[in-house]
Amino acid sequence: MAFANVHMLPQVQPPAPAARPTEETAPSPPQSPTVRVRGFSRRFGDTEVLRDLDLDIAPGEFVALLGASGSGKTTLLRTLAGLDPADPEAVRAPANRAVVFQDARLLPWKRVWRNVALGLAGLDAADRARAALAEVGLEHRMDAWPATLSGGEAQRAALARALVREPRLLLLDEPFAAVDALTRIRMHGLVLALWRAHAPAVLLVTHDVDEAITLADRVLVLEKGRIAAEERIDLARPRDGGPAFQALRRRLLNRLGVDPGAPPPSPAQSSPPEAELLAYPTGEIL
C-alpha cells in the first residue's frame, strides 16, 4: 500500500454493495474495484505531477480527493476520465464513466434536454433525459437554453447529463466551487441522493475540506503527486458537524498545512496552499 497513514476505522457501507471487506484485512478483495491505479506517474515537461500513485475505488464507493492547487488532483481526474492518455496497465477505469466539470460545459446551442441526451442512442433518449432532469429538479427547464440557467441550475443539468448514462464511475471536478454557498448545500444533498439512487463509484475532487467530510466514505489528501493521507469516514449521513466531524476536519486541515485554530490570515500573509483553501470558505458557512 502506498497510503501513508491508513486509519483502522470501521468500514462505511456504500449503498449498493451490501458488504465489502476492508482493504487492510483482505489484500485481494473478491469484488474487483471499479478503479484500479498502480504505480501511475505523469509528468508535464520537467514537473512530475503524479508520482508512482496507487488508488483503488470500490464499486459504489464515494471518495473525495483533497489537495492544494498543483497537487495533481485534476490530472488524476482527467486520467480516470480518459481525457489524458494513460498506460492501461497502470490505470484501469470503466469505459462507462461520466464527468461533471467545475464549469457545467453545457453546449450553448442545444436546449437543456438535448444536452442531457447528448450522445445517447435509442428512441427513448428524450424520455431518459426528461427523467434525469426530473431527478435533479430541472424538468421545468428542459426546453430552456443553457445561457438562461443560473449557475446552480447549470450544474444540476450537468449532473443529469452525467447520470443519465448510469455511469459506473462518476467523476466530479470541483463541481460546486463556482456556485453560492446556499446552492452548494442543496447540491450536496442532491449529490448524496443521486449517489444512493444510482450507486456509482464517485471520485470528488475538491478544495473544500468540509465538503469532502460531508459527502465522502473516504477522503484522500494528494500532495506533490502522491496520496499523503487517507481518512475513512464512518459518520452517519447527514453529517452535521459534531465533535467527530470537527476532529476529522482539524486532522485534514493540519495535513493540508492549515491551522484551523488560528484566525483566518489575510490573503497577503498566507502561503499559496492556504490561500487556495481559504478561497472557498464553505466550511465557515456550513
Binding site: 476520465a81 480518459g82 481525457l83 461520466a98 464527468v99 466539470f101 464549469d103 460545459r105 453546449l107 446551442w109 442545444k110 447528448l118 450522445g119 447529463r161 448514462r165
Partner: peptide, 27 residues
C-alpha cells in the same frame, strides 16, 4: 476546447463530435 473535451468525455467522437459540437460552434 472545453466543450469539445466535455463532449469527448461523454463518448462523442468523429462524426458526432463534428455534427453536435464543432459545426454548431462554428456557425
Amino acid at each position: 476546447p472545453r466543450l469539445v473535451e466535455a463532449a469527448r468525455s461523454f463518448g462523442l467522437g468523429g462524426r458526432e463530435l463534428i455534427a453536435h459540437v464543432i459545426l454548431p460552434g462554428a456557425l
